[in-house]
């Protein structure tokens, strides 16, 4: 982006924050934090909410928000789980199993694309504010998940499928590899395609975008579909890592995804934000998360902290904006 240089200071600040968090936790918890096992576990956790954060970022860049990311991931995960358990009659583990797994993944991704498409249509064509559209679809997707599973969890997937969530290649967890591939893909999509460029421009000023020949409806639908797709990919990693899925799993990810976005410098009003910031936000959050786990903080206490950090980031952003030089107002 031509505009990225002005954002350098922001990214630098984030980098300092990330390193400081890392150093502080390393100093206080050296034996438990700085271990290969801990890093492996961190690397297998990052992809789940990292992908959801990227999904959230896409919606935010267009000037909207996607409150249905976790519900989308859940529904896709449940569809995949149903395929896996229903077709998994061959306990032998031959080609049939691979076939089942591929079918499950495909089904999950298609479902996630449909979810995103629905959000996109509501926002782009019907003109529903993104908050309410995705709040509604969040209820809808969760509702479908509950009806399909009758509220129970689905457990026990084929061994080969679990490899996706828990296997490693040269000590690197497979989820991390998937994540890296996804990040590279989204970097290219956002920074080097006409679609990505249009997303930024539309998010910055939808009216000017329309006047410049951008088809806003198309871009919005695509953006929400890509957002859905990333939620779908996250769901595959999610269910294969914990070998189960139940409706409502991972609700905390919604807050974390939004938190990572605002921490990473994505402007909730649209048009501003970059992936380098987002990724540093993701790592910072995971380092903290890992520290809290080592300190065995309760999930409730973590909830408090995530909420506080979210608010703190917004307050800091408020002061940063205030301090940036006042520009010539419309005279």
């Amino acid at each position: 982006m031509l505009g990225k240089y002005s954002k350098h200071s922001n990214i630098f600040t984030l980098f300092i924050i990330m390193i400081s968090v890392f150093v502080i936790i390393s100093i206080f918890l050296p034996n438990k934090f700085l271990t290969v096992r801990n890093f492996q576990s961190m690397f297998s956790q990052i992809p789940e909410f990292g992908l959801l954060a990227i999904a959230m970022m896409l919606a935010m860049l267009t000037g909207g928000i996607d409150l249905s990311v976790v519900a989308t991931a859940n529904l896709s995960g449940i569809v995949a789980a149903l395929v896996l358990t229903k077709y998994n009659i061959f306990q032998t583990g031959g080609y049939e199993e691979i076939y089942t797994i591929l079918l499950a993944i495909t089904a999950a991704l298609i479902v996630s694309l449909i979810c995103g498409f629905l959000n996109g249509v509501l926002v782009a064509y019907v003109g529903v504010p993104a908050i309410l559209a995705t709040l509604g679809t969040m209820g809808l997707f969760t509702g479908i998940s509950i009806i399909v599973t009758k509220g129970y969890g689905i457990v026990g997937f084929p061994g080969k499928f679990l490899y996706i969530g828990s296997g490693t290649v040269f000590l690197i967890p497979i989820p991390m590899i998937i994540f890296i591939i996804c990040v590279l893909a989204i970097v290219i999509i956002i920074n080097r395609t006409t679609f990505g460029f249009s997303v930024f421009m539309l998010g910055s000023n939808p009216i000017a975008a329309r006047f410049s020949g951008i088809r806003n409806e198309n871009i919005l639908i695509k953006a929400y579909m890509v957002s859905g797709l990333f939620a779908g990919i996250a769901s595959i990693i999610m269910i294969s890592r914990v070998n189960s899925i139940r409706p409502g799993y991972g609700e905390v990810y919604l807050l974390q995804a939004i938190l990572v976005c605002v921490l990473g410098g994505v402007d909730p009003s649209g048009g501003e934000g970059n992936l380098y910031g987002l990724i540093m936000g993701i790592f910072t959050l995971q380092i903290l998360q890992s520290g809290f786990n080592i300190l065995s903080f309760s999930p409730f206490f973590k909830k408090v902290i995530w909420g506080l950090i979210l608010i703190l980031v917004m307050v800091i952003n408020f002061y940063r904006e205030k301090e940036s030089p006042k520009l010539l107002k419309k005279v």
Partner: peptide, 13 residues
């Protein structure tokens, strides 16, 4: 969203 998380988390904690 943030305060909701803080309030409920604090109550439970």
């Amino acid at each position: 969203l943030g305060t909701s998380s803080v309030f409920h988390g604090a109550l439970l904690t």
